[in-house]
Design a protein around this nucleic acid. Structure first.
Lengths: 210, 210
DNA sequence: GATAGGATATGAGCATTGCTCATATTCTGA
DNA sequence: TCAGAATATGAGCAATGCTCATATCCTATC
């Protein structure tokens, strides 16, 4: 008796080995984004994604174990974009005053949500709808927490709870503005308040240490 | 030709007029909560809810236009609980120092999430998954913003953006702790940090005005 | 107490959707 | 050239959201 070849229990089932397979995966992800942009979470069906991507439904399931895995992949894509954006913002002004650095981070995150707002909103919604929030959003938050909390000229290092609070407060507020389609989402006034939120908190922690 | 009787486009279709109908609606909501507690969002099917509630699927749809409406109702129930809890907390110490009042609000919100954590988490997830966040969560946030931001002994009144930031930052952080099942969710240390977050932000706004 | 009509409850079953699997096609290395 | 691996296909099954024709229950009126 020959054992069936085991499939790894991953989000992706088959790993592309040929160029056309890579293209297929890209097409599926792009199709997924388009379907989300067009019809939001409600219209997001795997059959619709496959059709939009120009592949059969079977092909879709060769690369994604289920609908959730597809959303997960989209979420990770967004996450990576944000992380890259934040990292870049921090690299530029390494010795700038803390306010500049915080502002750069805030702006980077907000700007990561440019274009295809409807799709992005839908991705956030869908990712939150599953337990995926933990793995998928936490890295961004952790990165921000670490970045914003590095001991830096009299600024105290943050405890894990404090890192959690500052990162989730920032991400949560931005996410709320996106989901609620706040008119001031990309306004300077909103950015100012987010900067104030982070700075005042970090300042208060530092002050309490002294 | 007789026009069909128009159904109001509401979350609830039929409005209970008899006592047994009220009981039916309660049973459905209770069944929904139980199904969520047992199987999370994944196991939440309308047929399962109807069975658990001891009513037929048809009856369920007499009172709730669709699955979303059911989640919406559960969400509103949670929201109302939180609002009541916060209002009560604020009523007690009307002339207490601002720190006490903020702490009371923070504690009230966190304590609103006691018991049936799995169901609550699922409700939050489900509500976020639809566009319902806007109508369903915003009232709590607005209430908190208004309550925490009432001009009070040298504390400045907040602009709409500022109210948005302080309420969503607080709610978002608490929600993140719930969804990510943070170990410190109900710890004193976490509460302290939430208080610090709100106080430092309000303080910074006030300081900037002067 | 009888009963007409409104309110409430039922559940078989239809439409849609997530997903599988047997099969076909394409590619690559020897 | 061609065998076998990689990739692609899509009919169709199972599960789920939801409807509607029908049945049962309740209440108001006489």
């Amino acid at each position: 008796m020959i054992a069936k070849s085991r499939q790894p229990v991953e989000t992706k089932r088959r790993i592309p080995r040929q160029a056309r397979a890579e293209e297929t995966v890209s097409a599926i992800l792009e199709g997924a984004a388009q379907v989300l942009e067009a019809g939001g979470v409600a219209g997001f069906t795997t059959n619709a994604v496959a059709e939009r991507a120009g592949v059969s439904i079977g092909t879709l399931y060769q690369y994604f174990s289920d609908k959730g895995a597809l959303l997960h992949a989209l979420g990770e894509r967004e996450m990576q974009l944000t992380i890259t954006s934040v990292a870049k913002a921090l690299r530029n002004d390494d010795e700038a005053p803390i306010e500049e650095r915080v502002r750069a981070v805030v702006r980077a995150i907000v700007n990561a949500f440019h274009g295809r707002l409807r799709a992005r909103k839908a991705v956030v919604q869908a990712v939150l709808a599953q337990g995926l929030a933990i793995e998928s959003v936490a890295p961004v938050a952790a990165f921000i927490a670490a970045a914003g909390a590095t001991a830096h000229r009299g600024i105290a290092r943050l405890t894990p709870e404090q890192q959690f609070v500052v990162s989730r407060a920032l991400m949560g507020t931005i996410r709320a503005a996106l989901l609620e389609e706040a008119s001031f989402f990309k306004s300077r006034a909103f950015e100012d308040e987010l900067v104030r939120l982070v700075l005042s908190y970090i300042g208060a922690v530092s002050a309490a240490r002294a």
